[in-house]
Simulated scan of single mutants.
Amino acid sequence: MITLRPAKERGHANHGWLDSWHSFSFANYYDPSHVHWGPLRVINEDRVAAGQGFGTHGHRDMEIVSYVLNGGLGHQDSMGNKATIVPGEVQRMSAGTGVTHSEFNYDKEGQTHFLQIWIIPNKLGIKPSYEQKTYGDEEKRGRLRLVVSPDGAGGSVSIQQDARMYAGLFDGDEKAELVLDKGRLAYVHVIRGEAEVNGRRVSGGDALLMQAEPLVAVANGSNAELLVFDLPETGWEPN
Rank of each mutant, 00 (worst) to 15 (best):
R60Q: 15
T84V: 14
G71R: 04
A49M: 10
A83P: 00
G53I: 08
Y67K: 14
H59G: 11
S66D: 10
V68C: 05
F54W: 11
D61A: 09
T56K: 08
L73E: 01
V68W: 09
D77Y: 01
H75W: 10
L69F: 06
Y67S: 07
S78M: 00
E63L: 06
L69H: 03
N81R: 02
M62E: 12
M79C: 09
V65W: 01
E63P: 11
E63Q: 12
T84C: 05
T56E: 13
L69K: 10
Q76G: 09
T84F: 06
H57L: 02
A49K: 05
D77A: 00
Q52L: 07
I64W: 10
I64T: 14
G51A: 12
S66I: 15
S78A: 02
V48D: 00
H59S: 10
S66P: 05
V65G: 01
G58T: 14
D77C: 00
H75Q: 09
T56D: 07
A83T: 13
H75N: 08
G74V: 01
G72V: 09
I64F: 03
Q52G: 07
Q52R: 14
H59F: 12
H57S: 04
G74R: 12
N70E: 15
G72D: 08
Q52D: 10
L73G: 08
V68I: 08
T84R: 12
S78C: 01
Q76E: 04
H59D: 02
H75Y: 08
A49R: 07
G71E: 13
V65I: 15
V65S: 01
M79W: 05
Y67I: 14
H75G: 09
N81T: 02
Q76T: 01
Q76V: 00
D61C: 11
V48T: 13
A83G: 02
L69Q: 10
G55M: 03
L73Q: 06
G72H: 11
G51C: 08
G71V: 04
K82R: 15
S66W: 14
I64Q: 09
H75S: 08
G55S: 14
N70Y: 09
V68Q: 04
F54H: 12
A49L: 02
H57Y: 05
T56C: 04
S78P: 08
G72W: 04
T84L: 04
G72C: 05
G53A: 06
F54T: 07
A50M: 02
M62P: 00
V65K: 02
I85D: 02
E63M: 08
M62N: 07
D77G: 01
I64R: 06
I64C: 10
G72A: 08
V65F: 01
K82T: 15
H75M: 07
I85Q: 06
V48E: 00
S66R: 14
H57Q: 07
K82N: 13
G74P: 03
T84A: 10
T56N: 05
G80R: 10
G74L: 03
G72S: 14
V68D: 02
T56V: 15
